[in-house]
């Protein structure tokens, strides 16, 4: 699976590094000083590297935990995000990581203790309950078999009941959760798309059915779930596909097990979108009618309204408004909130 591991000399002797390397016995190990000397090189091709990415084991030195941008939090909480990993095992054609990073290699920051210290500090300094989103620059669970991230952070958050953790994922690697008692301050949030769209654009991911089965198992074990219908993709048959998806999801998951539901249309910073169209010029998804509004590329305004209003209406037919948190830009957001 992973044929090459680059290792910052600083983390080589750490027990977590050694544990990870023991799980990849066949991989070629290459010592490096800092991960940027591999990850940030200009002439790399994200698309070619994605064929077989290498793993980089590194230490993160600053910015372990960051406040979420406006419009991306939850009401009543001070919200933060953090990324113990850069890049994802999956290969979703709409993913912003393709536009953000030059490299498709997986960077795993193994100094979990420093992330945990930053979480503790943020909680200590906050006047409100804190909510931490993981999996911003990666999938929180997909690499669990190698990283042991969830196992470590679940232990940590078990001792920090005043803070909340969201594990954002498309993965069915849920053993670390099922092997312990559910934590009331942890939400497992699944990104979901209609089956056809997942098959067309979410390469290497577990299918919709597998994700639903994993969610049912987590719900039975007492874990709180989040549903993230993001990105919504506009296409001719979107009404039928999304209605079918919502009906299926809410038929199989009792609203009682849901912590929150959100949606967001496909949107990317303009520079990332431009990079994506160069990486995948033949991709029809990126050829839809889009427009650039203040540096963010998304569907044309009329299409955007059609898509989000339809999906919002459908979702609110299944759940109470209190747990619905759409990620929409200004005008659209206020329309949904009203």
């Amino acid at each position: 699976m992973i044929g090459t591991v680059y290792i910052e000399e600083e983390v080589l002797a750490q027990p977590r590094t050694q544990r990870i390397l023991s799980r990849l016995p066949a991989a070629t190990q290459i010592p490096i000083q800092r991960y940027g000397e591999v990850f940030n090189v200009r002439s790399q091709s994200f698309r070619l590297q994605k064929v077989s990415p290498s793993l980089i084991l590194a230490a993160k030195h600053s910015g372990h935990v960051l406040p979420t941008p406006e419009g991306y939090g939850l009401p009543g909480y001070r919200c933060f995000y953090f990324s113990h990993m850069l890049n994802c095992l999956y290969d979703c054609r709409y993913c912003f990581l393709q536009g953000m990073f030059r490299s498709a290699h997986y960077v795993l920051f193994v100094n979990y203790d420093d992330f945990e210290a930053a979480v503790r500090e943020a909680v200590r300094d906050s006047d409100r309950p804190c909510f931490f989103f993981s999996g911003y620059d990666c999938d929180s669970l997909a690499f669990e078999g190698v990283s042991g991230f969830a196992a470590s952070f679940l232990d940590f958050f078990a001792d920090l009941p005043e803070a909340f953790l969201e594990l954002r994922t498309k993965s069915v690697a849920i053993d670390a959760l099922l092997s312990r008692e559910a934590l009331s301050n942890v939400v497992v949030a699944y990104s979901l798309s209609p089956h056809d769209l997942a098959a067309a654009y979410e390469h290497k991911t577990p299918g919709l059915e597998s994700r639903l089965v994993a969610m049912e198992r987590l719900a039975r074990a007492g874990w709180k779930l989040g549903l993230r219908f993001d990105p919504l993709l506009y296409h001719r048959g979107f009404r039928d596909r999304y209605r079918q998806l919502f009906d299926e999801v809410f038929r199989r998951l009792d609203v009682e097990v849901l912590h929150s539901v959100s949606l967001g249309p496909f949107r990317l910073p303009a520079s990332y979108f431009s990079t994506l169209t160069k990486l995948y010029p033949e991709e029809a998804l990126l050829a839809a009618p889009m427009e650039d509004v203040e540096g963010v590329v998304s569907y044309r305004k009329d299409l955007l309204s059609e898509l989000t209003e339809f999906c919002t209406g459908e979702i609110l037919g299944h759940i109470p408004r209190e747990i619905f948190h759409p990620c929409l830009s200004g005008e659209q957001g206020s329309q949904v909130a009203s």
């Binding site: 290969d91 056809d196 067309a200 654009y201 390469h203 029809a284 050829a287 044309r300 299409l303």
Partner: peptide, 17 residues
Amino acid sequence: VDEVALEREPRTPRRGS
């Protein structure tokens, strides 16, 4: 081009990625 885009249904690609 917009008309073509709005008529198009998603297709599973021939290649894996």
